[in-house]
Design a binder for these strands. Structure first.
Length: 593
RNA sequence: GCCCACAUAGCUCAGUCGGUAGAGCGCGUUCUUGGUAAGAACGAGGUCAUGGGUUCGAAUCCCAUUGUGGGCUCCA
């Protein structure tokens, strides 16, 4: 992840980078045979990669951390020195990874982390205590600037040397460092909170979804509660699309090999596709994307410039091969449903079309409670297909729209796909974490490959612009993000169970069922807890289920034909009539709060 | 796919030195009818992920497979 310049210049960055050196010192002290790789500061801390004679254990981490505290307290100075490549090679003669880095520095074009760098930097080393590292810095002057109370080692992980799976697997130790203990505690609290909100944990607790060993890894089973939430999401999605000029389409899950040859997927996407299914000596492939089908719908009749723009939308389920180690709950799966759409338009319509799709995306995301949305604009890479003039026009349209709408954005120059520029939208969740959801991508490849045309005003054939977009991304990932954002306490419009009626004693059951019936007739998702539990237990269960509205019914309510509302947040309202509760609930559901 | 770790009741977990299993929650039955986060008793529930090996004997040791977790790489 790219760090801002501010961060790289900050004291915090120096503290973290220096702490990683202290950690390396402690590790090398413990394992004199250790080969050290690289150890940079990262977003919330630092890491260092080592090649060690044995696998590290959590106990090693405790020991290393304790030694680090001692080293920090011994007030080691960080001493900077520039040396020649020859001296550096001599100094690091037993450190193959460092030697490789020195080679790179000598040739220029890479920095000491092995990343591309424009200037040819001098070779420099930092000495601190008994540890000398090839390093550009910057560092703190002395470990006295590091607060040992604000340093913590977090976990051990495997990592390839230079991220290349063909190179040796190293052991990486992640740690974090802050200026004060309070900051560390806050960070650790955030990690704990992230664990509490983990969609896999909440998914089990609220019975939302599961995966199953026999079904297969990365294949999601949506349980009734999760499916109800998805259904509500989709209902809203359908309504919005219908009201905004989209046409719904449905397409099959497999298509013939020739389709994927035409689209180019067998050329550039084959490693993500499943092996073909052979039917009557024809190969069929499970679809990894919906676009080729939508393109054929476009092509199914002659299109006039008057027909455009066309917007084909489909919640299309796709299957992509993911390597076995990368699956993660709902966030990374092998089968998922994209909320997909393809826009086809004329060049003169393109700016408006982009305006529309960005505005529409933002409105959708905001409806789901995401207030902060950041955009990332990716432009033409070196290798690309399509007319450079079309690229320029598309990039301008994207950027102009972002500016006009005042959406904060970053430009990733050359970061686009080979077939077109794109805007990705990322939201910040309740914990401030960023998630990519929407993607809006031009495609100059497939319209060519499928020879899409429309008849223009001039009677000639023209190539339409095509935009591929997914707003929520995939239903699976979006649901995962939503679970973590709300920590399972879904707003009433999404909650699988919106209200629960809690009779205090058996004699209130009949009235409770009457109330529930009335609510159901008004469209609420409601149930009655008529078990022999005490009221306290019923409330506790409803709280744990995160039901937004609890309607307690006892003698008083029954007599007055009322309900006593307790909200999920613990707030108790004075008893009200069922009609009044309906007004209140319907308003909140309508407003999606 | 790779490195490391893990897999015991529906869930969360305990199980010592290798001697064929336990708790809490949940579930069922009964009693209890209680006013805003757990009333009580009793009961049912496990081929210890799967397959193989070592051993007189395996939840426990070894190997493989599947799945899960933390990462790397990749990504909606």
């Amino acid at each position: 992840m790219a760090h801002s310049k501010d961060y790289k210049d900050s004291q915090l960055y120096r503290i973290r980078h220096s702490t990683s050196h202290v950690m390396a010192e402690a590790v090398v002290e413990k394992f004199p045979a250790a080969k050290v790789a690289i150890g940079p500061a990262i977003d919330d801390g630092f890491y260092y990669d080592f090649d060690l004679p044995r696998a590290l254990t959590p106990e090693d981490l405790v020991e290393i951390e304790a030694r680090m505290h001692q080293l920090i307290k011994s007030k080691e100075a960080f001493k900077y020195e520039e040396i020649s490549a020859a001296d550096a090679k001599k100094l690091f003669k037993d450190q193959p990874y460092k030697l490789e880095l020195i080679e790179g520095l000598e040739q220029g074009g890479v920095d000491e982390d092995g990343n591309p760098s424009e200037e040819k930097a001098p070779i420099s080393i930092y000495k601190s205590g008994g540890f000398t590292d090839l390093c550009r810095g910057p560092h703190v002057k002395n470990t006295s600037e590091i607060n040992p109370q604000a340093v913590k080692l977090l976990n051990i992980a495997g990592a390839y040397w230079r991220g290349d799976e063909k190179r040796p697997m190293l052991q990486r130790i992640y740690g974090t460092a802050w200026e004060t203990k309070e900051q560390l505690d806050e960070y650790l609290w955030k990690l704990e909170e992230a664990k509490r909100r983990d969609h896999r944990k909440i998914g089990k607790e609220l019975d939302l979804f599961s995966t199953n060993e026999e079904v297969g890894s990365g294949l999601v089973l949506w349980h009734p509660n999760g499916a109800m939430i998805r259904h509500q999401i989709e209902r809203y999605w359908d309504d919005q699309h219908m009201a905004n000029g989209y046409d719904f389409v449905y397409t099959p899950h497999i298509g013939k090999a020739s389709l994927w040859e035409t689209s180019g997927h067998l050329g550039f996407y084959a490693e993500n596709m499943y092996a073909p299914i052979s039917i009557e000596e024809q190969d069929y492939y499970l679809k990894p994307m919906n676009c080729p089908f939508h393109l054929h719908i476009y092509k199914s009749s002659l299109r006039s410039y008057r027909d455009l723009p066309l917007r084909f939308a489909e919640k299309g389920t796709v299957y992509r091969y993911e390597r076995s180690g990368v699956m993660h709950g709902l966030m990374r799966v092998r089968g998922f449903t994209q909320d997909d759409a393809h826009h086809f338009c004329r060049e003169d319509q393109m700016p408006d079309e982009i305006d529309f799709v960005l505005d529409f995306s933002m409105k959708m995301l905001k409806a789901f409670g995401f207030k902060e949305i950041n955009a990332y604009l990716s432009t033409k890479p070196e290798k690309s297909v399509g007319d450079p003039a079309m690229w320029k026009a598309a990039e301008h349209a994207l950027e102009d729209t972002l500016k006009r709408m005042g959406v904060p954005y970053e430009v990733d120059a050359g970061g686009g796909a080979f077939y077109g520029p794109k805007i990705d939208l990322k939201v910040n969740d309740a914990l401030g974490r960023e998630w990519q959801l929407s993607t809006i991508q031009f495609d100059f490849n497939e319209p060519e490959r499928f020879n899409l045309t429309y008849i223009g005003e001039d009677g000639q054939e023209h190539r339409p612009y095509m935009v591929h977009r997914a707003l929520l991304g995939s239903m699976e990932r979006f649901f995962g993000v939503l679970i973590e954002h709300y920590a399972g306490a879904f707003p009433a419009w999404l909650a699988p169970k919106q209200a629960i009626v809690i009779p205090i004693a058996d004699r209130h059951n009949d009235y409770a069922y009457q109330v529930a019936k009335q609510l159901k007739e008004n469209g609420l998702r409601v149930s009655v807890n008529a078990s022999s539990d005490r009221m306290n237990a019923k409330i506790r269960n409803a709280q744990n289920e995160k039901v937004p509205y609890m309607l307690v019914i006892g003698d008083r309510e029954m007599e007055a034909a009322q309900v006593a509302l307790r909200r999920r947040n613990g707030e108790s309202l004075p008893a009200m009539s069922v009609a009044d509760f309906l007004v209140l609930a319907k308003k909140e559901i309508e407003e999606k709060i």
